[in-house]
Design a protein around this nucleic acid. Structure first.
Length: 857
DNA sequence: GCGGATCAC
DNA sequence: TATGGTGATCCGC
């Protein structure tokens, strides 16, 4: 068939050749296209863009996958393979026994459907290159446009470059649905139970029709008749058809003589086997770009026949489940589904939108609200209620993230959806985002009505219920989060109580709030775990639950909290004024929080929420709440804790509470507060040094979740993979005076997990980030020098370690070998031998500034 | 149950 | 200047 795309021949003078897009694989209408030109244009228009960079990232991941597969492949012994071959042989027999050549399936696929419909309703478009879609994305292109290389899923601005005369027509789904219905009316005549794949394609079991028409060869005329009927019923739309013994083959066949053509594959085993064995794997539905590459580049499987020939490899390397070796093997044998179409009900419903990337939280919340509204609307229309909510985000760098919660109750209300979605989103901020999506799954099957067009009693009830609820919303029943943080939230508390992961994520984000709790935060916290309500909070709840029934709720609903709570962004930066205060500056933070509170109170003397408690009281309340969870022993002020290993300090969740601190150590280690502490991110200090926020923000972009915890002079930096949550690196140390040099940052060896060590590149990355947080912390504490000991275990590892630290800016000071008296002191301090390395903290930050500042801008 | 990936249209 | 929306499934935790 078609030649394989030049598989990653990296020719530096022709860089576009390695940018593999989906736009050049052979599709109908692409014959005679100057593929190299297309490739070059696409590359030129794309290179350097965020999208492009993401494609490169994905490409690298794929390569890695392929390498991994190759490695595993190379490790297989011949006896392994011959064992697997026995399994495969048996499996082939089993599969062969299921072969069913008694059915006749027809797959029909409309030609350039949207474009054809548009041409039908506007004949002046006939013969001209045209695409349905916009400058950002094309849904379908007609065949005139395809001659230029314009294709579905290609961004419009690239298409226009390829074909300057291209006419763009906006999508019009109602119109396509109308024409789709016309085609389906035809399909019904041949198979009343046909399976509609999408608006423009369907599978028909035409076995009975064939039988009625008698004899063989009937398929050809049936397909012709059907296509001609579609043509006349729709007023001129053409389609292509494939006929074969099963759906998988029929689908492949319909593509063979596209457009306006058909292909019939005889229903006998040898014809099928001949056909399938030379078929490129990519033609099979379910085998996409990635699978194709893995099979081709790692296992040299190019055709479906190869899947059988290399069956033992596939069985050794893939899981035996449906998507794995079993699937491949059955494909290789030309098997496919022949059964009667089971009516599959949907399993999820979703809504998502792309917009200009932004990090503006208000904007993001308002987008979120719109999407929640759309989703809720769709659910009500379909009569669905569900209990799992998934938030989908696409970052400005095109990374896709999803976060889910399962609720205790089924819902379809936009308020419920938004409330939980807001929490999920909040936990991700700050981040720059270009797409937000919401999906609901885990439907309430009992409430689901079987036929949407019918309208059953359950549907009626659900819709009634939901619409009545909408009315209620405007009166009193369902309070919006912005109006009343307490809301009606039993479900919420249960939900988060039973899903610790979600709760933990939330908790992490507000980790350092607990020292300085504003009324809004109390409110927020109550929302997270209302079960710990006590004292004032309980009173407030009582009061507000009463007012729920009053008519105070007449304003338009809004998702925004009326006042921004005081948050330490990244645990470090005040979200109100941008000043950075390390978590260890407990009193300063309290003061700072009080300052904002006072300011706020001044600004709104007449405000309704003046039920604020005095600062001292708030502080106590905050602590009680904080402590009530781990249920640990209370203050016990100075318990003479002389020698507690550093690790034990970090196992508690509230290291920052005053009670746990050793006041003496604090005094010793902490410098006097520098209140001009790096307003670097706002004004003041020249923008030469990366602030803590710069570092943390930059690390987020690299999918790294960094945290710093402090306990008096001790600190710990942890780096987690933001996706998996697994720890990839950490650094611990202490800020201490050092023989006449003032304060130094004493860094224990930075530790990286094995997982991280595997990839040398990211080793530097993760190590750098973890180190940078520690260094910046030292800077904030007034240290001028950072010092560490590259521990000596083995030659190889030690030299690697020294090289690593040198690369990030440390210099060797001396070898601590235990051979001198001076070494003894060091050995006592560090507990081992190795290479002492120092760095000037300011120099380090200057040196690193490019790394951390560029990704922010 | 959750999150990332892959796939199809 | 600029690369979609909806739904499904699978794998590995």
């Amino acid at each position: 068939m078609d030649e394989g795309e030049s598989s990653s021949t990296n020719n530096p003078s022709r860089p576009w050749e390695s940018y593999n897009t989906v736009f050049t694989n052979a599709k109908a209408g692409m014959e005679g296209v100057d593929k190299e030109k297309v490739q070059r244009v696409v590359y030129e228009m794309s290179k350097g863009s965020k999208y492009f960079q993401n494609e490169e990232r994905k490409e690298a991941l794929m390569k890695q996958k392929i390498e991994h597969m190759r490695d595993r492949c190379a490790k297989l012994s011949s006896s392994d393979l011959s064992n697997y071959q026995k399994v495969v042989d048996r499996r082939i027999l089993e599969l062969e026994a299921t072969r069913d050549l008694s059915r006749v399936w027809l797959h029909v696929d409309m030609d350039a459907f949207y474009a054809a419909v548009e041409t039908l309703s506007n004949p002046s478009l006939k013969g001209k290159p045209m695409a349905v879609g916009g400058l950002s994305m094309i849904s379908t292109a007609n065949y005139e446009a395809r001659k230029f290389g314009v294709r579905a899923a290609m961004p419009g601005f690239i298409a226009r470059k390829l074909c300057p005369d291209l006419i763009f027509v906006p999508v019009d789904f109602p119109k396509y649905t109308h024409y789709s219905d016309l085609t389906r009316n035809v399909f019904k005549n041949y198979d009343p139970n046909f399976i509609a794949g999408s608006l423009d394609e369907a599978y028909l079991d035409i076995t009975e029709v064939c039988r009625e028409r008698g004899l063989s060869g009937g398929e050809v005329s049936i397909a012709e008749e059907l296509r001609s009927s579609v043509h006349s019923e729709t007023g001129g739309l053409t389609c292509s058809a494939g006929v074969a013994a099963n759906r998988l083959l029929a689908k492949v066949c319909s593509d063979i003589n596209k457009p306006n053509g058909q292909f019939v594959l005889q229903n006998d085993r040898s014809t099928v086997m001949t056909f399938i064995s030379s078929l490129p794997i990519r033609k099979i539905g379910g085998i996409g770009k990635v699978t194709e590459h893995i099979l081709k580049d790692a296992l040299e499987i190019k055709t479906c026949g190869d899947m059988v020939l290399k069956g033992s490899l596939l069985y050794a390397l893939f899981t035996q489940s449906s998507a794995g070796s079993n699937f491949f093997l059955s494909v290789g044998l030309g098997l496919g589904k022949t059964d009667t179409p089971e009516v599959r009900s949907r399993k999820s419903i979703s809504s998502e939108r792309t917009f200009a990337a932004t990090g503006d939280e208000r904007l993001l919340y308002s987008k979120l609200a719109e999407i929640a509204e759309m989703l809720s609307h769709d659910m009500k229309k379909e009569g669905l209620t569900a209990r799992t909510l998934t938030l989908k985000l696409k970052t400005a760098s095109f990374e896709i993230r999803s976060r889910a919660v399962s609720l205790q109750r089924y819902t379809c209300s936009s308020e419920d959806i938004l409330k939980h979605a807001t929490k999920l989103l909040k936990a991700e901020l700050p981040v720059s985002i270009r797409l937000i999506g919401l999906r609901m799954s885990q439907f309430n099957e009992e409430a689901r009505h079987s036929d949407p067009s019918q309208g059953t009693i359950t549907k009626f009830i659900v819709q009634k219920g939901s619409s009545r609820k909408n009315l209620d919303d405007n009166d009193s029943f369902d309070l919006d989060a912005s109006k009343n943080c307490l809301g009606n939230d039993e479900m919420l508390s249960l939900s988060y109580a039973s899903h610790e992961t979600s709760y933990d994520q939330l908790k992490d984000v507000v980790e350092y709030e607990e020292q300085s709790v504003t009324p809004e935060q109390e409110c927020k916290k109550e929302e997270e775990r209302p079960q710990v309500l006590e004292g004032d909070a309980l009173l407030r709840k009582h009061k507000e639950s009463k007012s729920e029934t009053s008519a105070q709720n007449t304003e338009a609903v809004s998702v925004f909290p009326q006042m921004e709570p005081l948050l330490w962004v990244n645990g470090y930066k005040c979200n109100l004024c941008g000043i950075e205060l390390p978590p260890s500056f407990v009193e300063e933070r309290q003061e700072h929080s009080d300052f904002h509170l006072a300011q706020r109170l001044q600004n709104e003397e007449s405000g309704p929420s003046s039920s604020t408690t005095p600062p001292s009281k708030r502080r106590i309340l905050g602590k009680e709440k904080a402590n009530s969870k781990p249920k640990k022993q209370k203050p016990n002020q100075k318990d003479g804790s002389k020698h507690i290993p550093i690790h034990t300090f970090f196992t508690k969740s509230n290291q920052n509470s005053d009670e746990r601190r050793n006041p003496e150590e604090m005094k010793m280690a902490l410098p006097p507060p520098r209140l001009n502490l790096s307003p670097s991110s706002s004004l003041g200090e020249p923008r030469s040094l990366p602030s803590m926020s710069d570092i943390l923000t930059s690390s987020k972009a690299r999918n790294l979740d960094l945290k710093i915890q402090t306990l008096g002079p001790f600190f710990r930096v942890t780096g987690k993979n933001a996706d998996t949550g697994s720890e990839v690196g950490r650094a611990e140390g202490v800020v201490r005076p050092w023989f006449g040099r003032g304060l130094v940052l004493h860094l224990d060896t930075i530790r990286l997990t094995k997982e991280t060590m595997v990839m040398d590149k990211s080793l530097l990355g993760v190590g750098l980030y973890v180190g940078a947080v520690a260094i910046r912390h030292g800077y904030d504490c007034g240290c001028r020098t950072a010092q560490l000991l590259a521990i000596y275990d083995s030659d190889l590892y030690h030299s690697k370690l020294v090289r690593f630290y040198r690369r990030i800016g440390f210099e060797e000071v001396k070898e601590v070998s235990g051979s001198s008296i001076g070494d003894m002191a060091d050995m006592l301090v560090w507990g081992g031998v190795g290479t002492r390395m120092d760095a000037n903290i300011h120099h380090l930050l200057v040196k690193w500034s490019k790394v951390f500042l560029k990704s922010v801008s």
